[in-house]
Design a protein around this nucleic acid. Sequence first.
DNA 1: CGAACGGTTCGGCTTAAGCCGAACTGTCCT
DNA 2: AGGACAGTTCGGCTTAAGCCGAACCGTTCG
Lengths: 226, 226
Amino acid sequence: MLAALMDGQSLTATELAYRANISRSTASGHLSKLAAARLLIVTRKRRFSYYRIASPLVARMLESIKLVAAIEVPPRHHPRSAHDEALRFARSCYDHLAGHVGVAITDALVAMGHVVLTDDGGELTSSGECFLCTLGADLRSRQRSRRVFCQPCLDWTERRYHLKGLVGAAILRRLLELGWIKRVPGSRALRLTSSGEAGLSEVFHIEFNGKRRSHGEAPPLRNHKH
Amino acid sequence: MLAALMDGQSLTATELAYRANISRSTASGHLSKLAAARLLIVTRKRRFSYYRIASPLVARMLESIKLVAAIEVPPRHHPRSAHDEALRFARSCYDHLAGHVGVAITDALVAMGHVVLTDDGGELTSSGECFLCTLGADLRSRQRSRRVFCQPCLDWTERRYHLKGLVGAAILRRLLELGWIKRVPGSRALRLTSSGEAGLSEVFHIEFNGKRRSHGEAPPLRNHKH
DNA sequence: CGAACGGTTCGGCTTAAGCCGAACTGTCCT
DNA sequence: AGGACAGTTCGGCTTAAGCCGAACCGTTCG
């Protein structure tokens, strides 16, 4: 359930139970514990309870756990589902873009000299600032809290860096606005639209030769026992 | 046990059982599970089994978990033990210096213009490079792997930044070499020696007016039931 | 009003996590 | 050889974690 909330969205208790493949009552118990432990925040609206990750600090913790978990048992090459492939191709990571597409965009920004990445952090060059402005990405912080501006984030499927922070979030937001990528309902996976493929090719000079796994309106993974 | 290993040292199974306040057999079971999960690495020497954190990635994960855990239940103001006070004053954090002293040194480096800290990362200025060289801190990387050079690390007791990365590690190593601080056996706590107090005052212009909690050769916390 | 729906609480079940002491292996030191 | 010691394995115990269905409380809507 925590993994399902990692894209920063709020989800209802029933939806989370559905994803975790457990009963609503069990999910409710876990969710109230997680909320009591301040890992989640619950907001009640009408008759719904919306749960979301409590803070970026918690999100970072979960990400770091997943990163370690991804190293384990490397030889096990269990067959991947279509949904798994879609996740590997493109997904949201808390509030920014990850997976093959996320890494490719990051690589392109670095190659074009718009971003400089070091192990310590990242930096947006002035040409990069101009580039993102032209793209229409809004770099002003939404909240007054000073937040990490630009930072590399190790991608657990690609084992390479993608952009997180304010810059990463701005790019994801803009690509969604442009309709280049769309959220796959009921999943963290993102679908690259045909206009998106053209757009990324034109703006970032990225080509995905037959690598675009997501197809049409694939139903989200739903495997509840009952 | 993982927390006890966070200073990067290797400890024996019996020692870890002692710290965790559990029997050797129970500890052995947990440790072998942790090793199987690649969180720990075990090296057998003679009749001893030395366990240590498997990678900096794991250390970072644990640190991020502790960071989240430190936020929880802020109102609970349970009385602190002497050992707890010592930990808050100065301790090793994986391989660098944390606690009140760690933050103070970081502040001093920033104030003197030797280090520039941003949310994204840190940077050692040329004057800082010269300063550390004069101090005798070895900045060359021990391993061939490229490692984070300089980065702020949120301190869970002080809620402020201290230095981690290659620079942080070099400083801790040098202060130990100089005999300015000593490891408290059986603990992550560090003791500031009188020569260390003088040294920090002279070099970093830091004064600890009666704040030096650690005293003499205080026995480590040992509270096994039996 | 009453059915439908989202969410929670409660009681009860199953299972595994955690723990210990005893026994055993291998090493080290008289 | 024999005792001491570090570590592990095994058997057995206790407890709590995880799960479910049934019942219940509010909200929504026909």
